[in-house]
Design a protein around this nucleic acid. Structure first.
Length: 379
RNA sequence: CCCGCAGUAGUGUAACGGUAGCAUAAGAGACUGUGGAUCUUUACGAGCGGGUUCGACUCCCGCCUGCGGGC
C-alpha cells in the first residue's frame, strides 16, 4: 500500500508511493480540496493534465447533496466527477469546528445541523464510515473531534479522548466490512491524531493512532489560527510516534512554505483550500512570493502572473488582463487564477519530489525559500 | 424667454438652524481538512457668490448646472 522510495539523508523527508484502488499516488503530494465534489473552478481534466496525484472531497457534505443514492447510482465519486485518480474523503470531522454545523459532540457521535434542511441529526463514527464506503473514495478519513480555539485544557483532553474512541470504532466498523458490496475494491482508512497544542496530548494521540494500525495517519486540528511555531511543534512531537512505513498526512496545509517545512519534518500528504481560496481573493502564488492581483498597481502590468511558471494562464495572459477580469466581476478570472494557483502548488510539490529523489532536497528547499521570500507578501 | 423642481464623497442616497450619516466604488489587512461568503480598517463630500444668525448643508437673494412644463 505504501512504500518508501527515497529517504533524505539530511532531514526526515522522504518520497514514496501510496497505492490505492485508483493507481499510485507519489508522495509527497498535495490534494486540492473538492468539497461538494468539485475543485472550485478547476476541471478534473486539468487536474489530471497537471498530474495531480490525489484530491479530497467531503463525505458528510456530499451525503447531504447530491446524496448517496445519486452517487451510488452513478457508480461512485470517481465516475460522477470523472476523475480517475486517487480520491480521499474527509469525514466531516472538520465541521465539528463550525457553529453552523455542530450542535453537540458526545461519545456517541457528532450532532450536525443539515444546513440545507435545518434538520439536526446524530452521526456516529460508524455511520460516517458507511457514508465513505458508499461514496467509493480510495481513502476514508476517521471521524474526529477537532478541539476549538478557546477550549480549556480539560475540554481539549476530552475532545482528544473522544477522537480516540471514535477512531477505534471507525477502524472496527471498517474492518468488519469490505467494499465488495458496492464497488468491488478495497478502501484505505486513515486515523487522525489530535491533542491541541499540548505536547503530552499530541504525543499520546500519535502513539494511540499508530497502534491502531491504520493505512495512514493524519495530524489534525492544526493551521486553524495557532502560531506557526505551535503548529510545527505539534508535528515534531507526533512524527516520531508514527511508524516510518505508513504515510503521514498533515491536514489543512497549505502554503508552499508550510508544505516544504512539513515535508522536511517527515510529512507525506497535504490538503488545503489555500490555493483555490487565495485565487478567489486574487492572491496569486509566484516563485517570488504572493502577489495581490486586484491591486491597482497591476492595471498596466503586461507581464505574466509568474514569469517562471509554464501553465496555460502564464503563457497566454498578462497580469493587466487578469486584473481587469477580476475588477470587472467576470467569473473567468476565478478559473484562470484558481488554475494557476493549483498548478503552482502541484508542480512545486512535484519539483520537491524530484529534488528528494536526486538527493538535492536541502539545496532545493534553501533556494525555493530564498526566492519565495524575496517579495514577501506583496507589501 | 418665463414658471416649477433639484443640486450633499467617484456613484447612489439620508438627516438636521448646532459633531454631515449610510450603501457602494477606492486604498490597506485577515482568511490554510472551502460560503465565490465574511470580518477589520483607511481616505474621500455641501455647485459658485453674497446675506440673515452666536452658529447655515439647512433660511433668504443672485448666478451656474440639470430635469420637467409653458411661450
Amino acid at each position: 500500500m505504501f512504500k518508501i522510495k527515497h529517504a533524505d539523508s539530511t532531514t526526515e523527508a522522504r518520497t514514496g508511493e501510496l497505492k490505492t484502488a485508483h493507481g499510485i499516488a507519489k508522495t509527497p503530494f498535495f490534494m486540492p480540496v473538492a468539497t461538494k465534489l468539485t475543485v472550485k473552478h478547476v476541471t478534473p481534466m486539468e487536474l489530471e493534465e497537471m498530474d495531480t496525484q490525489a484530491i479530497i472531497t467531503n463525505a458528510y457534505i456530499d451525503s447531504l447533496r447530491p446524496g448517496l443514492d445519486i452517487i451510488k447510482k452513478y457508480g461512485g465519486v470517481h465516475k460522477l466527477m470523472n476523475f480517475h485518480r486517487t480520491i480521499f474523503s474527509d469525514s466531516g470531522g472538520f465541521q465539528t469546528l463550525s457553529d453552523t454545523f455542530l450542535q453537540e459532540a458526545t461519545d456517541k457521535g457528532a450532532k450536525f445541523t443539515d444546513p440545507f434542511s435545518g434538520v439536526v441529526k446524530q452521526h456516529t463514527p460508524e455511520q460516517i464510515i458507511q457514508i465513505e464506503r458508499e461514496l467509493g473514495s480510495d481513502v476514508a478519513m476517521c471521524l474526529d473531534h477537532v478541539p476549538k480555539k478557546g477550549m480549556t485544557a480539560e475540554q481539549v483532553a476530552d475532545a482528544t479522548r473522544r477522537t480516540h474512541l471514535w477512531a477505534e470504532r471507525c477502524k472496527r466498523y471498517h474492518d468488519a466490512h469490505d467494499n465488495k458490496d458496492y464497488y468491488d475494491r478495497r478502501q484505505l482508512l486513515f486515523g487522525i491524531a489530535q491533542g491541541g497544542l499540548d505536547k503530552n496530548l499530541r504525543e499520546k494521540s500519535a502513539e494511540f493512532m499508530n497502534k491502531l494500525d491504520f493505512d495512514g495517519v493524519a495530524m489534525g486540528g492544526l493551521c486553524i489560527g495557532e502560531k506557526k511555531e505551535e503548529m510545527f511543534n505539534a508535528v515534531k512531537w507526533q512524527i516520531p510516534h508514527f511508524s516510518k512505513d505508513k504515510p503521514r498526512y498533515l491536514m489543512g496545509v497549505g502554503s508552499p512554505e508550510d508544505i516544504i517545512e512539513a515535508v522536511s519534518l517527515g510529512v507525506d500528504c497535504f490538503d488545503s483550500i489555500y490555493p483555490t481560496q487565495n485565487a478567489r481573493h486574487c492572491h496569486i502564488f509566484t516563485s517570488k512570493g504572493t502577489i495581490k492581483l486586484d491591486r491597482g498597481k497591476y492595471r498596466e502590468d503586461m507581464s505574466p502572473l509568474d514569469p517562471e511558471c509554464d501553465c496555460y494562464v502564464c503563457k497566454n495572459f498578462t497580469r493587466a488582463y487578469l486584473h481587469h477580469l477580476s475588477r470587472s466581476f467576470e467569473w473567468t478570472h476565478h478559473r484562470y487564477l484558481s488554475y494557476h494557483n493549483v498548478y503552482f502548488v502541484v508542480k512545486f510539490v512535484e519539483r520537491l519530489r524530484k529534488a528528494l529523489d536526486k538527493g538535492e532536497f536541502k539545496d532545493f528547499k534553501k533556494e525555493f525559500l530564498q526566492e519565495y521570500k524575496k517579495m514577501g507578501k506583496d507589501r
